[in-house]
């Protein structure tokens, strides 16, 4: 689980071009959107692509996105629960 969280942070920094940040700047329970990392709607779409491309998980219900992408913790848990 801890390795997955680090991997997610690295992927988010790389794929979302957060060049000012390192993995140490992102806490596991930081809010990814809004006042946390300040991600936007395009970033949300990139997160969906990361789940699909790198973990083979498709989000069938967009309404769940808000919960899944709340933090690194919630993303990692969702991946653990859903990947084959």
């Amino acid at each position: 689980m801890e390795n997955l969280k680090i991997e997610l942070k690295e992927k988010i920094i790389e794929n979302l071009n957060l060049e000012d940040l390192s993995i140490d700047d992102i806490q596991d329970d930081d809010t990814l959107f809004g006042d946390g990392l300040g991600l936007d709607s395009i970033d949300a779409l990139e997160l969906i692509v990361i789940l699909d491309k790198d973990y083979g998980i498709k989000i069938s219900d967009p309404k769940k996105g808000k919960t899944i992408f709340e933090s690194i913790n919630s993303m990692a848990q969702f991946i653990m629960d859903n990947r084959n």
Binding site: N15, L16, N17, I42, D43, L45, E46, V49, D52, K53
Partner: peptide
């Protein structure tokens, strides 16, 4: 087939 939304925009 994984188009990047952030590239597409």
């Amino acid at each position: 087939y994984f188009p990047s939304p952030s590239v597409f925009v």
